[in-house]
Design a protein around this nucleic acid. Structure first.
Length: 492
RNA sequence: GGUUCCGUGGCCGAGCGGCUAGGCAGUGCUCUGCAAAAGCAUCUACAGCGGUUCGAAUCCGCUCGGAACCUCCA
């Protein structure tokens, strides 16, 4: 554990920051709602996964043994049209291929994108279709406890009965009678449900439905909240430490998960609920249905009407980390460009740091800087503050490099270790644009060219020197003249 | 309509009773044959009006403006 204040996490359930105390240290169970694989992941999914990527990385840094479970929803995300229709099947009909082809296609897409953004793979990535048996069993347990009822081959969770003994709405802060008032009008259209807030945990499948399974209630599909309850229980136990997801899942999805778990096993499943906030564009939520979202690959290529240029995955990652996960984050070209330059500055400084020379003693306070970084991460994973501290260090490192300050060998080692740990392991940034260094031929050729140019410069033949520089510029190679030597790099 | 949240300098975005946030842009400077890059320094704030307090961006009230959830979305 780091010295100073220990890790605090904002718990949605209690609406305050709490000291993080795992149920069974050093083990930590982390469950995150993964994507429904019926179309390309969009940037909002990335922010959510990034949030919990940081949680996973930091807990691991704190020496916890984390089991990180993130599901793939490949069935059961029912559309609200009473046809037993689900998103994946709808898409399959649209693309005229098998539902499982849709699932595979977009699961692959998701994995490509998570790799791009350097998101660590979960310990277990279970699928809903792989846990149909367990889902049926859970439905049965809820039925056995008289908290669900069967009608026409579908099974509904009995919210009214459940709320007699338990607090339905404890997570989202909703009250049933308030909800009722708001939905009364829509209740008229003869529904199978006995009560407006009841939700399907097993839904009868129509004739045409391709993906369906046999159950004690006939052919059908699992309800759309059920898989998370089932898979978290199976892999993390009836009660586990952290459950994460986007704020828009708080209600009804996560509320229903709690009800199902209590309904089936009598255990409130989660100790700490964490919810990340939304990405916005011009102040409005970025969402698929509003059509204002970018696909990750569009963002990288810049191939989108509202993008002025492409942005690298690490630029986007850094950009997102400059805002706290519980705040909304607004997307704009200006903000992205700022992040791009900021990241470059940070990375350049790390190169400087790794080449720094030590002195007899330090004139700078390294341990203070390191302590501040840990404190900010301990404060509910406050990455923007951590980054601000890292930039304070940038000034220190450059001052040492300019011989305005000095650093001892031991401090230097600590500082290098600190930056490598925080920037690469905890924030999960990585150096992009692998430069010339791997390309031996290019390096050798450039050495020759730079040598020739240096000779021209010595003769004050500026015309030739400039010609070489300009011609290389056309090949996207830039020459930077330093004090004693010239360096070169590929332009992005 | 109900519930919840937010309004910080040119832009993004922290802080949430007293102490420089940070990044980008701007300005000045250093380096330099020139350029570029880089570095250093520095200027713009807390939606409005009241209140609590020795002291408020930070707490309370009201007003104005915006958002999210209540239906699938991370």
């Amino acid at each position: 554990m780091p010295e100073g204040k220990s890790l605090h996490i904002y718990n949605t359930l209690t609406r305050k920051k709490e000291v993080f105390k795992p149920l069974n240290p050093p083990f930590v169970g982390l469950y995150v709602c993964g994507p429904t694989v019926y179309s390309d992941v969009h940037l909002g999914n990335i922010r959510s996964n990034l949030t919990f990527d940081i949680v996973y990385r930091y807990l691991t840094y704190l020496k916890y043994n984390v089991r990180y479970v993130r599901n793939i929803t490949d069935v059961g995300h029912l559309l609200d049209n009473d046809e037993g229709d689900d998103k994946i099947e709808k898409r399959a009909r649209l693309e005229k291929i098998e539902p499982m082809e849709i699932v595979q296609k977009y699961t692959n897409n998701f994995h490509v994108v998570t790799q791009l953004f350097n998101l660590i793979n979960p310990s277990i990535e279970p699928t809903a279709t792989g846990h149909i048996v367990e889902q049926i069993e859970m439905v049965q347990r809820i039925l056995d406890n008289n908290l669900a009822y069967e009608i026409n081959g579908s099974v509904y969770f009995d919210v009214k009965k459940y709320s007699g003994e338990h607090n339905y709405g404890e997570l989202s802060g909703r009250k049933l009678d308030e909800l009722l008032e708001q939905t009364r009008d829509e209740l008229e259209g003869g529904d199978e449900k006995k009560y407006f807030a009841d939700f399907a945990i097993w839904k009868k499948a129509s004739e045409e439905t391709i993906m369906k399974w046999d159950s004690p209630w006939g052919l059908g599909v699992p309800g759309w909240h059920l898989e998370c309850s089932v898979m978290s229980t199976k892999y993390l136990g009836q009660r586990f430490d952290i459950h994460g997801g986007g704020m828009d899942l708080k209600f009804p999805h996560h509320e229903c998960e709690i009800a199902q778990s209590i309904g089936a096993d009598g255990v409130n499943p989660v100790k700490y609920w964490m919810h990340n906030n939304m990405l916005t564009v011009n102040g409005t939520k970025m969402s698929k249905s509003l059509g204002n979202s970018f696909l990750p690959l569009e963002l990288i290529s810049g191939d989108h009407p509202s993008l002025e240029q492409g942005y690298s995955p690490m630029t986007v990652r850094f950009f997102m980390l400059q805002a706290h996960y519980r705040s909304t984050l607004d997307f704009s070209n200006e903000a992205l460009q700022a992040a791009e330059k900021g990241l470059k500055k940070l990375m350049t400084t790390i190169t400087t740091l790794n080449k720094l020379e030590s002195s007899e003693k330090s004139s700078v306070n390294i341990s203070f800087l390191i302590k501040k970084c840990k404190e900010s991460m301990n404060d509910d994973f406050n990455t923007p503050i951590t980054i601000a501290h890292l930039f304070d260090g940038v000034k220190i490192i450059n001052s040492i490099n300019d011989d305005k300050e000095s650093i001892s060998a031991k401090d230097l080692e600590n500082l290098q270790d600190h930056y490598n740990t925080f920037v690469f392991e905890i924030l999960g940034l990585k150096i992009e644009h692998v430069n010339s260094s791997n390309d031996k031929l290019a390096n050798a050729l450039m050495d020759v060219i730079i040598n020739i140019r240096n000779q021209s410069k010595e003769k004050k033949d500026w015309e030739t020197a400039d010609l070489i520089r300009n011609e290389l510029k056309r090949l996207n190679i830039s020459i930077n003249d330093g004090k004693d030597s010239s360096t070169w790099s590929y332009e992005e």
